[in-house]
Design a protein around this nucleic acid. Structure first.
Length: 159
DNA sequence: GCCAACGTTGGC
DNA sequence: GCCAACGTTGGC
């Protein structure tokens, strides 16, 4: 079977939080509103069903990875790009050329101990994470080693 | 709220 | 295709 890939998705919890994900019907949510081409390419081309996601809360006093989610639907056009009332409306998006894509994710489990950005920056094993090197990318690949280190730091056995 | 880093836009 | 101006992200 295809090996699972690992990712880190960022969100501002004031906008959408890990707890919000848990409250959703079926605990699933379309990951819409991504408007960055590199992140779009991951969503459209690389992220596959069953891939695992570290759920990161950004733009708060103590940014941290707080939980695990899983991809339940692969990349498909982000229809919010064609909704003039949506926050991330993009008039250049069309049915023929959607430009922007999203995936659906499902709640899996919280980290028993959230792993803060400060801890991540202090751990030499995590020095190559985009989170450290290029913090603005909102959809980032995570290596299996990084994944294991973070879950150990979060004291969270998985699966 | 500040501001550095980064991404996008558009004139040339 | 360059690059200045501008807008956004996100840590602090």
């Amino acid at each position: 079977m295809r090996p699972l890939n690992h990712w880190l998705f960022k969100t501002e919890p004031g906008c959408f939080s890990f707890d919000d994900l848990k409250q959703r019907p079926d605990m699933t949510e379309p990951w819409d509103g991504v408007r960055n081409y590199q992140a779009r390419n991951f969503l459209r081309d690389t992220i596959k069903q069953r891939d695992l996601v570290l759920f990161y809360h950004s733009n708060i006093p103590e940014p941290a990875i707080v939980g695990i989610a899983q991809v339940v639907r692969e990349g498909y056009p982000d229809t919010t790009a064609r909704d003039p009332n949506a926050e991330h409306f993009d008039p250049k998006s069309s049915p023929e050329n959607p430009i922007w894509y999203m995936v659906d994710v499902r709640f899996v489990k919280p980290l028993i101990t959230p792993v803060t950005l400060e801890q991540i920056k202090c751990n030499p094993l995590l020095a190559d994470m985009p989170l450290v090197k290029r913090s603005r990318l909102s959809i980032q690949p995570v290596t299996p080693d990084q994944w294991n280190v973070i879950l150990a730091m979060g004291e969270t056995p998985f699966p």
